[in-house]
Each structure stands twice: as C-alpha cells, then as structure tokens.
Write a protein that binds this DNA or RNA. Structure first.
Length: 279
DNA sequence: AGCTCATGGCGAG
DNA sequence: TCGCCCTGAGCTG
C-alpha cells in the first residue's frame, strides 16, 4: 500500500474531509487512547506529508504523526470499527466523515519541534513542491553504496519505496548495483524529474503505473496483463517473467531485507557495479 | 488453524 | 545483518 504517493493522497483526503471542523478522536484498539483523549473535540486545522510520514494538525494541541510502515492502512467512510483500529476520527461539516487507521508503525502526538525534527532527518520528496534534488545528489554522489539502496534510504530521498525504486531504475536503464558515486548528475536529474511525474500521477490515480504506452502489452502484440497489486509495472514482482521490452527474464535478489527486481539486459552492469559496497 | 508474505523502518549485536 | 513490530490476504493443511 504505502509509498509516498499514498501518504500525500491521504493527507489531501484528510484535509478535504475534516479540516476546519471539530473532530471526535478515539482509539478503539487502545494504544493511542491517552493522546486521543487529549485531542477529542479539537479542530483539525492542517495536514502535511513528507515522504511516507503523515501529519494531522489539531489546533493548539499539536500534530498526530502517522507512519504506516509496511502493513498500516487508512480507510474512510463505512469501514467497520474493529478492535485493531488504532486511531479513529469522526467529523467534517456534517459530522458524518470517518477515518480508521490500522497497523501503523507510528501513531503519536508530537509538538511542532518534534515535527520539524522529522522533516530535518528526511531527504527531499519529489512530491513536495520546491524540494531540491541536489540535496539528494550530494549524498548519492559521495556514496559507494548501490543506487538501489540509496533510493530506499529516506534520509537521502523521501517517499520512494520498493516499487518506485525498481521502476525508476528500469525506466532509466540503470543497473541497481551501480554505486551512487558513479551516477551522473544529468542522469539523476532525469530520474528525479521522472519520479515527480510518476508519483504525482500515483497521487491522482491511487496506484503505481510506470509502463509507457508504447510498451503496453497490447502495443507490443502480447496478451493484456493484470497485476495483482493494481498497477502496470515493468519489473516489480515480475520475477521470471519476460521483460516487457526485451523479453529477458526479470531477476530478483534480496538487498537490505527487501526484494529487488531488475532486467539484466535493459539495466546492464557498468564496470563500477562490481564494486558497490553492499552487493 | 497455521504459515508466508507484503509498496517500512527501527534497534540490538 | 538480523529480529522484531504492526495487520490482513492468500495460500496450505
């Protein structure tokens, strides 16, 4: 579920549903009950998103900092209230809007200062207007770590997860094991610009689509394909299947506890790739 | 009923 | 590098 596009979309949705109105705040599951009691009845007056971090502002009472982790989910409307709901909001103009949060890695009430500290330790986010790709490149270009690992490091770049990582590397023909220091500035700028477009589209459609029209199966004379995760992608979770462009079997390998996917033909290793510190 | 896996990230060793 | 936290879906029995 959650890469940065999901979080930014949720921020927008919370703003539209709840902002400006007093909000009932509860924690059916109990782990957020003390803070929920402090917030109950406050006006939700602002939202923010940075990478995979979501912030809900309650007038005069601080921010609820939410991180969904790998398995957290937010549902709205008629979603059933079960004993796993960590945070429940009810409010809006007619008091009939509802939000349920389940399974988050973080759900905590924090101050402005604590919120700022989170922003300070995150890298630039392609979905935050004005964020500077140069800040990410400053770290990438100094690192011997693979570009695949760097793209997932939220201190380097905020919001990209396992799907966007695999797909942006594919779209630019970059070998995942290329050390960051071997990535040129123009190539990085192109990848960033691509992420801005892909992730904005992800916010709009609520899914990750990365396949260019000319590579759609129909355009390539192949039968249509449906992914079980909702979007159309080149390599993510397509292990052993033919690359949509060249037909080579998509490969996978765990890197830093996560599965990495790539096409060894479209993303050929550079000489420096053998030297990545983390391969 | 129990296992594995998932678009994350943390802290201990 | 590993184990662990959170929940639920999709398998296997």
């Amino acid at each position: 579920m959650p890469e940065g596009h999901t979080i930014h979309r949720l921020a927008q949705e919370c703003l539209e549903r709840f902002a400006g109105w007093t909000t009932r705040v509860g924690s059916p599951q109990g782990k957020f009950a003390d803070s929920a009691a402090l917030l109950d009845g406050a006006v939700l007056d602002g939202v923010d998103a940075h990478g995979k971090h979501l912030f809900l502002g309650f007038e005069g009472r601080g921010w609820v900092h939410i991180h969904l982790g790998l398995i957290g989910k937010i549902a709205f409307d008629g979603d059933a209230v079960t004993d796993t709901v960590r945070l429940r909001l009810v409010g809006g103009r007619h008091g009939d809007q509802a939000m349920n949060l389940r399974g988050p890695a973080a759900c905590e009430l924090i101050t402005d200062g604590e919120k700022q500290a989170i922003h300070d330790r995150l890298g630039p986010d392609p979905l935050r207007a004005g964020d500077d790709p140069g800040r990410a490149y400053a770290r990438i270009s100094r690192s011997r770590i693979s570009v695949a690992a760097l793209l997932m490091d939220q201190k380097v770049l905020a919001g990209v997860g396992n799907v966007y990582r695999a797909e942006v590397l594919f779209r630019h023909g970059v070998d995942p094991f290329l050390p960051g220091r071997a990535l040129s500035r123009p190539l990085w700028d192109a990848m960033w610009a691509d992420l801005v477009v892909l992730m904005r589209e992800g916010v709009r459609t609520n899914r990750i689509d990365t396949v260019r029209p000319e590579h759609e199966p129909e355009a390539m004379g192949r039968p249509p394909r449906r992914d079980d995760h909702g979007g159309e992608v080149y390599v993510y979770r397509r292990t052993g299947q033919p690359c949509l462009i060249c037909g080579t079997e998509v490969r996978t390998r765990p890197l830093a506890n996560r599965n990495l996917f790539w096409c060894p033909t479209c993303q050929p290793p550079a000489p420096e790739s053998a030297l990545a510190a983390d391969r």
